[in-house]
Structures are given as structure tokens and as C-alpha cells.
Design a protein around this nucleic acid. Sequence first.
DNA 1: ATCGTATTCAATTTGCCACTTGAATATTAT
DNA 2: ATAATATTCAAGTGGCAAATTGAATACGAT
Lengths: 220, 220
Amino acid sequence: MSTHTFKSDLFEQFARVGKALSSGKRLEMLDFLAQGERSVEVLAQLAALSVANASQHLQHLRQAGLVVARKEGLYVHYRLAGDSIVQLLAALRAVAEERLADVDKLVKVYLHSRDSMEPVPAKELMQRVKKGLVTVLDVRPPEEYAAGHIPGAINVPLNEIRKRLHELPADQEIVAYCRGPYCLLAFEAVAQLRKKGRQARRLENGFPEWKSAGLPVEEA
Amino acid sequence: MSTHTFKSDLFEQFARVGKALSSGKRLEMLDFLAQGERSVEVLAQLAALSVANASQHLQHLRQAGLVVARKEGLYVHYRLAGDSIVQLLAALRAVAEERLADVDKLVKVYLHSRDSMEPVPAKELMQRVKKGLVTVLDVRPPEEYAAGHIPGAINVPLNEIRKRLHELPADQEIVAYCRGPYCLLAFEAVAQLRKKGRQARRLENGFPEWKSAGLPVEEA
DNA sequence: ATCGTATTCAATTTGCCACTTGAATATTAT
DNA sequence: ATAATATTCAAGTGGCAAATTGAATACGAT
């Protein structure tokens, strides 16, 4: 029977995708790419890699079919090859959170120790935005905000929050979000706002998850 | 800021799960484990590995939190650590199918060339079973059938089909299933039944997917 | 045309992982 | 106790992949 070699071949192909997911640096880059297109240089900076090394990783990802490249002038912009990849990353993260004691510890130590607050689920936020009950705060850099954000969200990067505090209504709850469940910007923002006496929480699962869940997105 | 090291640590932990998925042999074993508990020896045979090597792979998987072990007498039985892992495997397969040209080719060559038939979606099968329109045929070995099968399914292992053809109604369509979308048993069964003039198709996505979709399961 | 820049390629080193082999451990049967 | 068996451990080898470095390519600006 040649079915043995067939099955082996097939699983070997699946393993190519697994191999692509077997490096922390690559996962980090994929996480950034979930937010939108990025150039090699930017990705290298974000993941703390040399440009050449980042380029190699990206080609690894490209061969695995996870990212695609688009050349524009000097720059090559990479992006995720499809929405199924966001789902794959989410599934990976879910398993890791559920099963890896170390991740749990890390998350608890680094994140939950910073906040005594529960995150706001996306659905809940949708409802309360409709009713005008909350102010949505996007604490990412303006470029990322411009590339897509939750409808009605105000963009105030983290380091400008104290200066621009007056732009935020004092009598409404503020829900801050950034890039994802492990992005620290929103945590910091909430902490600062609370210090100033505001009522603030953070959105569960940042913008990439919001978008991939099919929820409405506003651009430019 | 120590957030850099935090993020790196975190993604490094995620990568542990990715590493576990980076070997074809391990994915093959996980696929078998999706059908139920298996001993080391059995898994070694199924994946064509030495026992020691299989054991090592299993410990790798255990460290990644994907499988758990249960010792009973001389034997150690491994099983998947949770349903989320089935979802992760499905997501991985989906991405691979969608993005890897080679997989596509393999699947098309090895599977689609064998059948001119479309698979039956699980939902469709449910409806038609309720109306008594189809005979459901489980072509897996009796042990696997005993561990769980689709309600009302008849168990006739592939190699007994010709002998036991009379057990199958001649005037109804037969839907065969086995272990998953890449399990060849169902294909063979359909091919043989068609040769005998029966109307036969195969179920899309075999029993593990059926079960993990929350559809009803019958045991013993 | 020449220079500067973003990206990729190529070559090298280093370290990790798969697999083999032989022994050790643990449990059951005699 | 002794033997038999399932599984795991430990050591050794070979190969692949990550990261570094320096050069090459491709495009834009001057």
C-alpha cells in the first residue's frame, strides 16, 4: 500500500505550517502582521531582529504560505495570507493559555497583577457604544489608527494621554484598546486614567481580533 | 521597559506549542489520538516509529500540554489534553489546505482522483438520517467503533465489506465514514460499494470532526 | 550615471532536535 | 524471587535551522 507514504507526505506538509509557528520571533511578527501590512524594516524593529534575519524569517513564513509580499518602490510590504491564519493564531494562543502552566503564570504575573479590572468583551462594547454609554479609546500610534479602528473610537496614543485628558469625557466610562490581549498599551492607559479618577476598563482582545470577528471597522 | 522581555517570553511559550506541531510524525500521532486513547506501542506502529522514539515524541507533546497520560497496569494511555486541541489541528489543516500548493496537489492527486463523488456535509447527513433516508456505514475497526460512533451507524470494517454486503440495504444510499478527511478507508469503501452497484458517498470530515463539532455520539 | 537605501542572497558558525541504541524502571505473571 | 513486558531514560550521532556577517540586487533620488 502506498497510503503510508501518502499520509506521511501529507502530514509532513502540515508540519511545514507547524514549523513556521515554532519560533517565538515568527509568532511575534505574525502578531504584528495581524494588525496590517508591515515592511521588513519595521518588523525587524518590532521583533528586535536584524533586518537580514527578519527577512529570512519572513521568507520562511512565505514558504509556509502564511504571509504574502507586495513590492512597492523600495519597500516590500508583508501581510497575512488570509483570515484563516488569524484563526489559527487564535487557536494556538487558546491552547497555549489553556494548557501551558508557564503561560498562565506569565500572563497572571505580568498582566493581571497590573489591573484589578475585568476586560470588556467585544459584544458588550458594541451594545454600549450603540447606546452612547461609553467612550472608546484607541491608544495605538496614529498610523495604526489610520489603517483601521473601531467605529467612533478616539485616538490618543499612550504618551499623550496626560496632555489630552481634557478631550475625554469625565462622566462616561472609557474603554481602551490596542493591539491584542497581550498589548500593554491599553493596560497602561487604564491605569493612568484611573489614577486621574476616571472610570476606565480595557477591551478584551484588541483590534485585530475585533476585525477578524467581522465587527465593523472604520478607516482613515 | 521590561515589556519587551515579557512579550518575547510569552511568544516563546506559544512557540512551544508550535514546535510540537512542527513534526509530521507528531501530527500523525495527534491525528490518531483525536480518535481516542492510544498506548505508546500502538502509536509507534501507526506512525511507523520505534517505541523509544514514539515515547520521546509523546513526551514532547506532553510538555507542550497537548496530550496527557494515564497509566493502567503496564500500559500508558495517551489522549489529547482537550477539545481545543482538535480545533487547533483543524485550523492548522485548514491553513495548510488553503495555502500550501503542495498539499492541494497531494490531496487532489491521491484523493480526488479516486472518487468522482462529493462528500456529504455533516449537517446534511444529520437531516437525512433523521428522515431514515440513508444508511450510515462506519468502516473503521471494531475497537474504534466501540469507542464512539455516529448514532445508528453500522460497523463493517473495510476488509469485510464484500462478505457482509447483504447486511446493507440495497435500495438506500450509503454514507461511509472513517477517521477524518484524509483517511482512505471511506474512499475505498465507497469505491467497492459502487462497483457492486450501490449508491454510496462518503462523509466529509470523519468521526473526530463530527464529535468535536458537538454532534451526537453513540458508544458501546 | 552615481549614490543611497531597502531588501535579499550566500556563507559560516552555533546550537537544538530527531533518531538509534542499550540500559533502567515499573508492573504483572509464574 | 524470577521472568517477561511496556515504557522511559541516557548517551551518541547526524542533520537541519537560527543568527551573524558581508556582499549583491533593485529601485529611487540627485
